[in-house]
Amino acid sequence: MKRWLPSSLLSGMLFVLWLLLNQSLDPAHLLLGTVLAVVAPLLARTLMQPIGYPRLAKPIILIRLLGMALVEIVHSAITVSRLILFPKPDGMNSQFIKIPLDLRNPYGLALLSCLINSTPGTVWVEILPNRHELVLHVFDLHSEQWWVDTIKTRYEKPIIDIFHEEVHKENPP
């Protein structure tokens, strides 16, 4: 099972993608989708070689995190649009801030960057290579410590939990 279906999540998503693209539930399309879902992860396995496919330890936390991020996106989109329409008289305090990160998993970092960049008002610039600190650009900064606390407790901690098991599994002695 593990050998022929290395990532059930990826296979399922490819299957759904094929059906959505063709907009049909014909048996022929079901068959083609199954072939795609089995063959593509097998062919792409060598691309993922050093770390392997991501394993979600706790999908429930991922769903809750995505819901929280959706609410946050709508909320901050409204904030940013109010700032654009009615600019403050003394100008916005747009700055770069630094946030120290504990997260090391590449998939976790990718998820974190997607969530942060999707939220209007914050843009992920880069991770400073030698000290593992994240540089963010914030549209209207009121308190730097608040941002550090928010990112670390509301985003980073759930992501560490989601990918937690994989860290132990993928690093054999």
Binding site: I73, A77, V80, I84, M92, S94, P120, G121, H137, F139
Partner: peptide, 14 residues
């Protein structure tokens, strides 16, 4: 520019 990049973000998401 660094403020301008936040404008299209709301176009793209919401």
């Amino acid at each position: 520019f660094y403020q301008r990049i936040h404008g299209p973000a709301i176009t793209v998401t919401l």
